[in-house]
């Protein structure tokens, strides 16, 4: 499958989240920040998009239909061997789950409900770190 890249000059972010309200809140802020946003509303759609497009950062909800955030992280790191920064979103803030996400290769972990401003800062920081 050919991988599609984007040439808008903007950093491209894939937001994988099945809750319409949460995805709207995230996208509203990140679009205002000037990013090019793509959305996936379940794990399967997220995997398809990741396989066929190039993104600068992935924001992935932990609990989605078909594939969890951890499974998506595993797909990116182990199967596709990509180093795209991944931010995991979850309502679950227990240490064990957070550590598991980092072990799988996530770069950041944010507990819901989070401020979109906080997410914005974390996105910016990760993009800077990854060049």
């Amino acid at each position: 499958m050919a991988i599609r890249s984007f040439n808008s000059g903007k950093k491209r972010i894939l937001v994988c989240e099945d809750d319409e309200m949460v995805i709207n809140v995230i996208c509203y802020k990140l679009e205002k920040d000037g990013y090019d946003i793509d959305k996936a509303i379940d794990g399967k759609q997220a995997a398809d998009k990741i396989r066929s497009n190039v993104y600068d950062i992935l924001i992935v909800d932990m609990m989605m239909p078909y594939m969890t955030g951890l499974e998506i992280t595993g797909l990116v790191r182990n199967e596709l061997m990509q180093s795209t920064p991944i931010i995991i979103l979850s309502k679950i803030g227990i240490e064990e789950t957070i550590l598991k996400a980092f072990e799988m290769g996530a770069d950041d972990y944010i507990v819901k409900p989070f401020s979109p401003n906080e997410l914005s800062v974390r996105v910016k920081k990760l993009l800077t770190l990854k060049g």
Partner: peptide, 14 residues
């Protein structure tokens, strides 16, 4: 469990 998990995030935002 799944529905209430998702729904609670919406309620927290609102």
């Amino acid at each position: 469990y799944f529905e209430s998990h998702k729904f609670s995030a919406q309620l927290a935002y609102l």
